[in-house]
């Protein structure tokens, strides 16, 4: 079983992607991904990102493997309504698929994370976790009139420190940033990182050797990236046939998720 913490549906304005919800589910299903935590890609550029959550909720209603991760924006005056919708969403056909996590895109709105204080407190009260996205697209490849810098992952780690009861996932950060946060990741039980954007020779092996196996969550970044890449990085790096390797793969693919989605 594989759980994907970094999946999206919808279109991307500068690059054609296959973001149809059914295509996303079918593509991931081919690799054994059976729980897809999905946000709307279009929220990144919509001036009210909450409007695009409906697509995610509808997909969760109809597609068995799609779990909703609505995007919330604390600078939208009605964010409390969007949070209420997240808290009370129960798909008729799949009632177990309530919202466990919301995703923030602070660099796209844009806002400083200090502006999310009230929202983050509300998430703690609601017992929801948060994925704070640090990158959607390599800044070198962005449209020249729509450049969005990466969010430093340290700012996400600071949120986890400030809100120890909040489960915090660093979304889409790079290898160097994760390694720089090794101590915080190991010391803060509520802090995790997805592996959707890590890269480099033996990268997963290196991160596991850094002692981070319990803090890594699988993420594909579909539909912008092919999910084959992220899955292959894990399996190729760790699958040496030993029980320890199988256990490490299992933790990254789904085991660590249990502490977040319980």
């Amino acid at each position: 079983m594989i759980i994907d913490f970094c999946a999206f549906i919808g279109n991307w304005p500068t690059y054609p992607v296959s973001g149809d919800p059914e295509v996303v589910q079918d593509t991931l299903s081919n690799y054994g991904v059976s729980q897809i935590l999905v946000s709307s890609l279009e929220s990144a550029w919509c001036r009210n990102p909450h409007r695009c959550n409906d697509l995610v909720y509808r997909a969760a209603e109809t597609l068995a493997d799609i779990w909703p991760v609505p995007i919330l924006d604390p600078t939208i005056a009605t964010w409390k309504s969007a949070l209420h919708q997240a808290r009370t969403f129960v798909p008729e056909l799949h009632p177990q698929k309530r919202v466990h996590l919301v995703r923030l895109l602070p660099t796209y709105s844009p806002y400083d994370l200090s502006q999310a204080d009230e929202l983050l407190k509300s998430l703690v009260e609601a017992k929801l976790g948060v994925i704070i996205q640090t990158r959607l697209e390599d800044p070198r490849r962005q449209h020249p009139l729509a450049q969005v810098p990466d969010l430093p992952a340290g700012e996400v780690a600071a949120v986890a420190e400030q809100y120890p009861a909040l489960k915090v996932i660093i979304g889409g950060t790079r290898t160097g940033e994760i390694r720089n946060l090794q101590r915080q990741l190991m010391d803060q039980p509520n802090l995790y990182a997805d592996i959707s954007q890590v890269d480099g020779l033996d990268v997963i092996k290196v991160l596991v050797n850094d002692g981070l196996v319990d803090k890594l969550l699988f993420g594909s970044h579909i539909p912008i990236f092919t999910p084959h890449a992220a899955i292959a990085r894990v399996v190729c790096d760790l699958d040496d046939g030993t029980p320890n390797a199988v256990a490490a793969i299992s933790k990254i693919f789904s085991g660590n998720a249990g502490r977040i989605l319980d």
Partner: peptide, 16 residues
């Protein structure tokens, strides 16, 4: 472009 990138991750561009 290994070792900047991961062999398998880059192979995915073709194999997938």
């Amino acid at each position: 472009d290994a070792p900047i990138r991961h062999f398998s991750g880059q192979l995915a561009k073709v194999l997938a």
